[in-house]
Design a binder for these strands. Structure first.
Lengths: 204, 204
DNA sequence: CGCCTATCTTGACGATGGAAAGAGGCCAAA
DNA sequence: TTTGGCCTCTTTCCATCGTCAAGATAGGCG
């Protein structure tokens, strides 16, 4: 933030600087254009400096993914809490937060959900997307208090799949390629509404 | 196919050999482990040979993606045609074909739908996933003959999003991590059934 | 005040994608 | 059948990459 840090040999907070430059680089160049050396360059540090903060490039990417999941979960919570109405409305809210995060961080979002193809492993007991499922399961079970465990699980699957599929296809340009952002939002809301309605109806 | 091809200087059909070894390599090592030189090695040619058939590594990846979409579309058609019943049942069939392809080719499937993050561009007038949308739109419009164009479009969005989201999350291990393949299939079918029911209900 | 150690730099290695130039073999025209 | 042209493949080279090993620097603790 300071306009001219007169930094000498030591950086001060290289770890955070690498996370920041890495995140920007990821969005700019895509995962396959991501380079540890370029991250270092942008942090104005030698190419080997990152090694003292991240064991490998994958370790830095894993950190980006980890923080992405934390942010995503927070965004969903915030949006659901902002609503505070019927459970169904809050369920839609979760989806709005989810999609907004994806739209704002397309490359990171795609990386978070292509860990398998990209061979990125979080630490063993790592949360990953557990927070997301927990949030959804909480609201779905609120709607389906009387339903069987199986129906509830299947509606959690269904709710997650709908919102995840939609934003994923949008980010790929498969849905709404030439739509305005306004129109796209309305299509997303329509999908979320249909999803919530289906969950509610499962309560009989 | 011949057990010992005594191939001399010329390979015979290097292009196809590269596509084949590339596809295997992609599934083995993931997109970030994919290497043009390793493809060449597996086809038993020098590392520069591929250049005469693919302008760049991305060009080979684009070809894999292109063929993936063709296969995926064919798998969906075949499964829907095998059913031949109610439109709703055929809609589920499309989803079954879609998910089966994804499960059989996880890395390729993820690449096909992470083109943006991976900066892979198909040729300008290229089909991509258009065939998929067309297939779904056909059946959805059969179900919703009397609905407005907007409702139909939104149900196409919804149908695609549901099936795409589910298989994507399964491939990531986010859904059904420790489920049997049998149990997973049943969860997938449940999602497809809920999706189809929602589409049918949109017909009023 | 002086050392200690975390932090950062320099330099090197093997591997990669790509370009350039030459060798090899197929085929069609004479 | 011979010959010339051209497509295929190889060899060599370059810049860049991730990672490792050593050395330089400096902030902080004794």
């Amino acid at each position: 933030m300071s306009p001219t840090k007169p930094r000498g040999y030591h950086h001060g907070d290289l770890r955070e600087a690498l996370v920041a430059s890495g995140r920007k680089l990821l969005e700019e160049k895509g995962i396959r254009g991501f380079t540890l050396r370029e991250c270092a360059r942008r942090a104005e540090v030698s190419h080997a400096a990152p090694a003292h903060h991240f064991a490998s490039m994958d370790d830095l990417l894993a950190e980006l993914v980890r923080r992405g999941f934390a942010e995503l979960t927070a965004a969903m919570s915030a949006e659901a809490e902002r609503i505070k109405g019927e459970p169904a409305a809050r369920l839609v809210g979760l989806g709005v937060g989810y999609m907004a995060f994806g739209a704002a961080n397309p490359a990171l979002f795609q990386l978070m959900f292509s860990r398998e193809a990209n061979r990125i492993e979080l630490d063993q007991g790592e949360a990953g997307a557990d927070g997301i499922r927990r949030l959804q399961a909480g609201i779905v079970e609120e709607i389906l208090v009387d339903a069987s465990a199986e129906v509830r699980q299947r509606m959690v699957d269904f709710a997650w799949a709908s919102m995840h599929g939609f934003i994923t296809l949008v980010l790929e340009g498969e849905i709404g390629g030439r739509d305005s952002s306004r129109g796209l939002k309305s299509r997303g809301l329509a999908v979320l509404a249909a999803m919530a309605e289906t969950v509610v109806r499962a309560a009989r």
